[in-house]
Each structure stands twice: as C-alpha cells, then as structure tokens.
Amino acid sequence: MKNKSVLITGGAGFIGSHLVDQLIYEQPEKITVVDNLFLGKDANLNQAIERYPNLKIYHNDISQIDQLKEIIINESVDIVFNLAVIPLPASLEKPAWTFSHNNDMSVSVCELAREDAFQTLIHFSSSEAYGTSICGPMDEKHPLNGVTPYAASKAACDLLVLSYCRTFGIDASIIRPFNNYGPRQNEGSYAGLIPITVNRILQGLPPVIFGDGKQTRDYLFVTDTARAAIDIYYNTNTRKEVLNIASGREYSIVSLVELISQYLGFSGTILNDSDRPGDVRRHIANIYKAEDMIGFKPKVSLEEGLRITVDWYKSYFQEKSKAVE
C-alpha cells in the first residue's frame, strides 16, 4: 500500500478507527476517513492522528454520491474500505430509513467503483445477515435469513456488491465479521453488551441479561478483524468472494456477562429482562474459507481481549466521570 491512497468510510467508528490504526503500519501514501458521526467519534482517531498527522477526515454522508465522488477524486483514492452503516438498533426504531440508507451508501461506493473512480473495494458485511444458525458452524453458504431490517439491509448490500462484481467487473471483496468487541465500542446510544455491562457494574448496578442468556455469539477482538480486512485486500483470490471473519467458537451471553462480573469483582445477582426484538438465538462461524484464502487465525483470546477491553472501559468511564465533576 506504500504508493496507494486509502479511504475508510465509517472510519471514526469502532471497527473503522481500529482499521485506520492498522492501516498506518502499511505506510500508504494517503489515508482518508469519511464519517458523518452518526455513531463515530473524532476522538476515536486521536491515536491515529498522533502517528499519522496527515490523516484527512471528512464529515460527509456517503449516501450523497456526488460528495463522495468529489472526495475520492480530490484524494486520488485507490482503495476503499466501506464500513459506513446505520446500526441494528436504529432499524427497530426507523426500519425503512435504516434499510434504504444502508443500501444508498453501498450503491454510492459500487457506482463509483463501476465508474473507475477507485480501484478496489473491501466491503464490510455483518453476521446478522445470516440470522439464527440453522446449521452450525455457519459457513458462507448458510442461507441469508436476517431477522431485522438492519440484517436485511446488510444482506441486500452484499448481494449488490457481488452483482457489481459479476455484471460490471468491479474489483471487490466482502468481509463478514461476527461479533466484534474491544476498546472504543460505542457506549452511548446503541451501545453493545460489554460496555453496558461494565458501566453498570462500575456504577454499582447489577448487570442485565435480555432473555434467558443462553443465546450464543462468536466473539472476535477488533484488531483481528482489522488485520483480516487488510489481508483480504492483499489476497486478490478473495475478489468476488465473501469471507467469514470470527473466532469459530461460541459463547453464551450469560457466560460472557459472568466473565466480566468476575473480572470486575461483582458477585451479586445478574438481572433478567425480556427478550430483545430481532435477537438471534445462535451464532457460530465456520472460518475455514478465511483460513484457506488469507491464512486467517485469531490472535487474541476472549479472556485476553476481555481483560484489555474491560480495563479500557474502566479508565474511559473514570475519565468521563471526572470530566463531569
């Protein structure tokens, strides 16, 4: 990537900012972030800016194709990593808007790839596109049975990218991450289970589990996903393909909450609440394809990753509390 100009849509978000961190090691000529800050935060890029002062950041909505095209031309972009997304919880409140907006953003990058505005697209999918596991572990041929409008939008976006590959010959690969966790995961609106649980315990409140807690997820530390995305770019045999990126192991929600509680010294009662709408019952990935095509192997265990994540949130929430005081 040393002579390349790289653009990351959604680059101020959780996974996107970690991808920016990893891309800096590749020493590209330019790194550009486009993020409208629906979920992302400029603060997520503070470390990246320290290491890469020339990082360009645009606060645009990539569904506006003319704006995106202007940025791509101005920055002479060669590679686009597309992580821009409206998240799952938003689709429970604004289903039509979430579905259409996610598709509009993918249409923008696909159209610009078709017009040769840039060379290569690495598109981020989601394991939510599969829905609940019918036959696990779930490989890339598992039916796309997404439950929520968000899941449907991600499946539609994947099919869109593949259609542009097959019809127009764009140079694109699709990475389908399972449940990512780590520092900088959104703790405010649409927060994930781990930051919510850590925050509650630090406030002296008991953790809450929705449903019976026996739902399973395939958790992967965020830096493993970021590294895999870069490896997918380098391995051109992944073009026109979808690759699961996950640990290949499943953990119940209750076991995860218990691990966090144990690490934080919480020994009280864990509360149960009603099931969340659209919650999948089982997720576990088959990652043989990624192992074969890019030599993928997770480097961070759940225990190590949780320790790093919980320690980060402890510091983050403490600093946030001091700022309020």
Rank of each mutant, 00 (worst) to 15 (best):
V222H: 04
R227I: 09
Y219K: 04
H123I: 06
G182H: 08
I253H: 09
P195Y: 09
I86Y: 00
P137G: 14
G188S: 07
A12D: 06
V280K: 06
D66V: 08
E258Y: 08
S163A: 13
S261A: 13
S17Q: 04
D224E: 06
S163W: 02
I287L: 12
D292S: 14
P207G: 00
N36R: 08
M138F: 09
L88M: 15
I230N: 08
V20S: 06
P143S: 03
N244C: 07
D61Y: 01
L39R: 10
N272D: 07
S63M: 01
I72H: 09
I73R: 15
Y58K: 03
F317P: 12
K69D: 09
E325A: 10
D78L: 03
T132S: 15
D42N: 15
G10A: 01
T309Q: 05
L83H: 04
Y190H: 11
E93S: 09
L162N: 09
K314M: 14
S247W: 05
Q119T: 07
I79Y: 04
T167H: 15
G13V: 01
L271R: 04
L45V: 12
L264V: 04
R239A: 10
Q67D: 14
L7T: 02
I72T: 11
N54K: 13
Y181N: 11
D66F: 09
G278W: 03
A228E: 07
F124P: 00
H142D: 09
N237E: 10
K2L: 07
G10F: 00
S76P: 01
G278H: 08
Q185V: 03
R239D: 07
A228S: 11
A48R: 01
G10V: 00
I253R: 03
Q318N: 14
P89E: 01
T132K: 06
D21F: 07
I31N: 07
N82K: 01
L256K: 08
N286A: 13
L37H: 11
T216Q: 10
V161D: 05
K94I: 01
R281H: 14
N102A: 01
E187S: 14
V107K: 06
T167P: 05
Q27C: 11
Q215V: 06
